[in-house]
Write a protein that binds this DNA or RNA. Sequence first.
DNA 1: ATAGAAAAAGTCAGAATGACTCTAAGTAGT
DNA 2: ACTACTTAGAGTCATTCTGACTTTTTCTAT
Lengths: 229, 229
Amino acid sequence: MSSWATSSIETPTLAVSTVIFALRPNGDGCLQLATPLVRRIRAPFEGQWALPGGPLNTDEDLATSASHTLRDTTRLEPRYLEQLYAFGSVDRAGGKLAERVVSIVYWALVGADEADRAIQSENVQWFWADELPTLAFDHNQIIEYALGRLRNKIEYSRIAHVFLSETFTLAQLREVYEAVLGRELDPGNFRRMVESTGTVEETGERLAGTRHRPPKLYRATTITAGETK
Amino acid sequence: MSSWATSSIETPTLAVSTVIFALRPNGDGCLQLATPLVRRIRAPFEGQWALPGGPLNTDEDLATSASHTLRDTTRLEPRYLEQLYAFGSVDRAGGKLAERVVSIVYWALVGADEADRAIQSENVQWFWADELPTLAFDHNQIIEYALGRLRNKIEYSRIAHVFLSETFTLAQLREVYEAVLGRELDPGNFRRMVESTGTVEETGERLAGTRHRPPKLYRATTITAGETK
DNA sequence: ATAGAAAAAGTCAGAATGACTCTAAGTAGT
DNA sequence: ACTACTTAGAGTCATTCTGACTTTTTCTAT
């Protein structure tokens, strides 16, 4: 093994970035997966869109760093945050950067209400997750990977309600699943699944103002211990 | 946001470590999960056992770094290697270290044959995964986390055969599952499961020299595309 | 030959799943 | 006030999946 007494400039820079997902209504009034991106204001990839992120602050934990950068750049405070993967290929800057950067990437979910409060500016914009432009670094692959994780995780865990506000109807919850998975679900079977897993409970209220039978309102059951896993 | 023009000594050190699993026969002749650890030869935690690992080499990818460190310290060349998690709490050295270390941890599986070829010395030893001493840093928690991942992943993917040699009987494969999951499985149901998922194929050979009906030998079917996921 | 042991195939009941039907309870239009 | 329309919500049914179990086969050891 080689000596490691060389100057610490040899150590790759550590960055923390986050893939944020929200469901936003598209032209058809359907919910669609969207992700906010920020425009790079310096080389390399200046002017191109990239994941929000930044260098790891020395006195911050990884997840804390992700939250803070998110708040600073997009003003978003996600309701769900989980580590996705550490990306550290030697060539991930595509030869455009002298120093090496290892990115620890998180993924996050925000509710529709929260998503509207995000900064929208020249340099921060929402994009549909399945119609992204060419992004800086390897960020296209990273978002693709995060999408896979989200689609997989929604099937076996109870994170779907994070996209909604505190109370919601089963039809709204089903809409979340349909938007994420990209296919329609049978309303009856969906109801049976949700009720059998005990992820929601009735509030006793119903949603008024619809032009049909008023649906019951539910809330997510409080999670005991580390069940989100 | 604070200025980032400070010297790069502010950047945390990046280390890559690996949790290695193998199945080794214990006193009863049963297979049991074991993991090799190395003794630390410098502060902090000098003399205590720790995961094999080391600083990230600037010109190596993360997984490559994991393999190389493994080969150098334990002489093992795992047949399966996957990123586990990036651990980077500010206090993970327990106040015993001035500089901050972020560890990108991999987990690996080695076959029983390969495991025997590992270095066994004063400073490198196999431990039963469920009877570990107190390790350096947060390595006890890391191994616990890796164990959970292994147990989870063996249920939905086809990694079990990696613990065995190229050809094996269904009884041997079942033994792997039983050792990892820590419970007995019904032989008939196990056979049905394995055959229905098409993860193995007959070699045409049978294992001779048993004191009963000779079982068929199987090999793992070759995996097409990224199916291990 | 016979006993013992595990391999390999088969059985069966209950749970989970997907496709589907039927009834309830609202609104909107006339 | 009645009717048409729409979705909520309950229920049905056939198929598949799962776990527990039984039976038959085929080898070695004595």
